[in-house]
Amino acid sequence: MNSSLSPVLSASRVSRSFAGKTILSDIDLDIRPAEIFGLLGPSGSGKTTLVKMLAGIDAPTTGQIRLLGTLLPKRSMLQQIGYMAQADALYNELTARENMEFFAALYGLRGKRRSVRIEETAGLVGLSEHLSKKAWQYSGGMKRRLSLAIALLHEPPVLLLDEPTVGIDPVLRRSIWAELRKLTGKGTTVVLTTHVMDEADKCDRLAMIRDGRILAEGSTAELLRQTDTDQIEDAFIKLGGAGQ
């Protein structure tokens, strides 16, 4: 990774509190072009809140977030982001295709390009044959995959995926990771959250989050070396315990 490149997405001294309760504090992040950046942490650590701010939906209480050099939140910058929420935000009474058509239209895709992109992304997540099923007929894993396909529809330069592989079977999970790799090969930057330690290995770089703070940031190898451990889980425990 060439660290001299200016970051695609950056957070500087970001904190977020709701009704006086601090969820995140003092977050500094630099996400580089075309890398897969993982936010690793247990549930309740503040990952989702951070992702929402990085996606430009929520605004930090203090600090700044910049996407491609532009200060967020800014509505026009939302076009640059492919967002996949933790909850599958689908219209259950509509078919998968209708769900995709709707979100494609919101991102300005129309006509031939829209139908081509729907076919492409559905193929990518292995749903091509299930597009005329209604979303409520989908299993949990299929819903995750449909949400992912929707995030990819408008070919955004930055992908923000909140727990993208939950409930997806191992074979498909592997193919989704391969696909994300392919996307970074074409220049897409991917930020994802996970609480599965073994997925962290597949990220180029990681930030470990606990109780709203970043414990450490770096590549897997760097984190292991820094903590003198040979597993990410051990590294996490060591880093988390060091503060106590």
Binding site: G56, I57, L78, A85, A89, F103, L106
Partner: peptide
């Protein structure tokens, strides 16, 4: 409550 509103507002819709 289904989260679609949040998802909608993550798109550039006004």
């Amino acid at each position: 409550t289904s989260g679609t509103l949040e998802r909608l507002l993550a798109s550039p819709i006004r």
